[in-house]
Design a protein around this nucleic acid. Structure first.
Length: 105
DNA sequence: GCCATGGCTAGTA
DNA sequence: GCCATGGCTAGTA
């Protein structure tokens, strides 16, 4: 069984709307512990498939994709396919695409 | 570029 | 120990 905090992380990730991104730290904070960024990473790595998470919508605080190689390509394609645009330096402009939470979407 | 953070995992005894 | 982080500092130009 999953502990409550892990469950909240999953809920937050699932609520990122299509075409928006969220950062690891943001998800941790929304789930209730701003320091739990590493747990967010763990959830993404180990539960993405089982829980059907929109893992590709999670990026780092600089707006960059943290994966490399194949993973980078897959994530970038998935994001571009739903309308997220990348600037010249290969990062997402967070001001434009970062999800700000339920109310502001 | 360095390091605090926190929870899991692999691998040894 | 490992990390799909993040934030702050030192040191160069």
């Amino acid at each position: 069984m999953l502990d409550p905090f892990t469950t909240r992380i999953i809920e937050v990730i699932k609520s990122i709307p299509e075409g928006r991104v969220a950062t690891y730290g943001q998800i941790a904070a929304m789930a209730g512990d701003p320091r739990a960024t590493r747990q967010v990473v763990w959830v993404l790595r180990s539960l993405s498939e089982k829980e059907n998470l929109p893992w590709h919508r999670v990026i780092n605080s600089k707006g960059a994709i943290s994966l490399s190689g194949e993973g980078y390509d897959a994530q970038r394609r998935a994001l571009e396919a739903e309308g997220v645009r990348f600037s010249g330096n290969g990062t997402v402009v967070l001001d434009l695409f970062q999800w700000r939470g339920q109310s502001r979407d």
